[in-house]
Design a protein around this nucleic acid. Sequence first.
DNA 1: AATGAATGAGAGTTCATTCAT
DNA 2: GATGAATGAACTCTCATTCAT
Lengths: 188, 188, 188, 188
Amino acid sequence: MVAVDKREAILEAALALFAERGFHGAAVPDIAQRASVGAGTIYRYFENKEGLVNALYQQYKHVLGQTLLGGFDPAAPPRAAFHHFWRQAFVFAQKHPLAFQFLELHHHAPYLDATSRGLEDQLLAMAHDFIAAATARQVFKDVPPPVLLALVWGAFRGLVQGGVEGRIDMTEKVISQAEECVWEAIRR
Amino acid sequence: MVAVDKREAILEAALALFAERGFHGAAVPDIAQRASVGAGTIYRYFENKEGLVNALYQQYKHVLGQTLLGGFDPAAPPRAAFHHFWRQAFVFAQKHPLAFQFLELHHHAPYLDATSRGLEDQLLAMAHDFIAAATARQVFKDVPPPVLLALVWGAFRGLVQGGVEGRIDMTEKVISQAEECVWEAIRR
Amino acid sequence: MVAVDKREAILEAALALFAERGFHGAAVPDIAQRASVGAGTIYRYFENKEGLVNALYQQYKHVLGQTLLGGFDPAAPPRAAFHHFWRQAFVFAQKHPLAFQFLELHHHAPYLDATSRGLEDQLLAMAHDFIAAATARQVFKDVPPPVLLALVWGAFRGLVQGGVEGRIDMTEKVISQAEECVWEAIRR
Amino acid sequence: MVAVDKREAILEAALALFAERGFHGAAVPDIAQRASVGAGTIYRYFENKEGLVNALYQQYKHVLGQTLLGGFDPAAPPRAAFHHFWRQAFVFAQKHPLAFQFLELHHHAPYLDATSRGLEDQLLAMAHDFIAAATARQVFKDVPPPVLLALVWGAFRGLVQGGVEGRIDMTEKVISQAEECVWEAIRR
DNA sequence: AATGAATGAGAGTTCATTCAT
DNA sequence: GATGAATGAACTCTCATTCAT
């Protein structure tokens, strides 16, 4: 097994345990065991437990950003743009369900470093700009963009959690219906 | 100081630390110190740390339920009912901001006991019934009630978090605007 | 057992193990076991392992200083003063043989804090002043005081170690003879 | 790079770290890194960490012995012999300052093996014999030879340490003056 | 009833040593 | 021969829990 695989195994195990139990609830030896790796090995790849969460956070925050932007047409009309973001967010949440949980659980945690916080701020800023532009063009309701953003992302997150917890059968149709609901929430 | 006050002090301290750092991140001696109580005293009032989280969870889940239902008129039309719930949810979130954080953070945690889960299920069921009834009367969009519930509660949660994290200035107007947004998300 | 006794027991155990094996060679659980105390208990009395060595160092450096100065007559002639210091140094080394070993072993160690270093410097300065004064009065050879100090204390240390290691039978007579030897080394 | 060079590099690195931090304070990977060698390589040349200290101890104890005896004239009168030993001891301490520190620091350590202890005993015996002979000829004071040895070597060690720690400016003159002091300590 | 000193299991982390490459 | 990634035992330290006072 090459080094890259071991690093991968550690990240994967840590993702699962951090998502399930939180940072303080996931013990390093447990992570090591799940990764089929000696406990000491983790410290060859990450400076310490905090380094491990931050690596994870940054990796998936980056993937999330790339996924949301991937194939996005800046010239698209707002409704199409919204559709793009909505579907791409789902792509991420379904491809990386643990990572989605993990990211949402570790928001603003005191053990996140400046780089992690920077990535979060960046994504937030991008979302804010998009909404502010559409608001300015009177596409969205006359409501402060941060409010619209909170409502949209909150609704999305609620939906995904409902799926994960088995309260919602996440069919293609449900995703579309939810998109329409949320669009009506924000469109003028 | 009478016993009730000590119990109260412990619960209050635990609420603050659990909300801020999570279950595993909050040390019992820290809770004791914040409550100005000996560490051993906590074990006179609660069987152990799990007993303490569960007491807290049950207490505030109950308060949340009472707050949502308080003054509710079952005969009110859906829009008025929705208005009632929306405002009452805000009443709770603003009266007990730490409790709101705490409840959302500890959803489905493995250390929650059957009673805690039961209370959660009960609240969920009530919400579901209300939505299902309105859906049946074609007030809401033809979307599975759990989906509508997830969208609404998710949006609400996102809004509150935005306020807590300082991204949103939670004025009376914002609360009203958000209510209108969310209503349009679900109404037919 | 009262707290003071436990602190005492920890200090005594730590003294023995640090003197025997050095700082890094003495494991905290070993110290705890020798002190008949739980490992965690050590951390109620000392911030960490470094805090423990420093407490020990400061305590015995202080005792050494007090012992050397105890009953000293500043007006005494140099030979009498030297006799006093020589005998008092032996009093310390025989009353606290482990402490003597410990102090000599941990000289200038990187884990000693400013207070510990300060005490060491203070003792050194006192000795230096005494020697410099006698040198100025042409009682001692015309040799830099630090050199005389190094020779005297080194010889003393060598003698004590020889006793501890069983190479020397430390009788009253030997102590006197050694005193005379060292006196002749430094006197003009 | 030939094998001998690697062994040399390891010994040199180990000497520096053992002298500075002691046996338990010097980590094998640190030694390897300082020697620009893989950690595993150390185990090709030495059985384990103990084997490494012992090799070092024996090597330098041997060099010390050779240096002290080098050019020694057994027929020389005691004062000349003492002068020889004193200067040669300085030759060693100045040529191998780390080795001097190392040897003094690791006296009687439990991880020294029989060979190391044997070398130490041998040197001690030689010194003892020299002193005993001179004492028998009434050149030295009527003091047990081990006492004289302890005083002389202790004084020497104190002097060297004072130089290393910067308290003494180790000029040619100081070395001579100190020699005279110590000679007067022991001569009848 | 209340305390907080005491505990030891278990946390995060280091390191002497091994072994596949 | 040489490496350094890998290991797990052992290290320092924390903390949920107990119990003598």
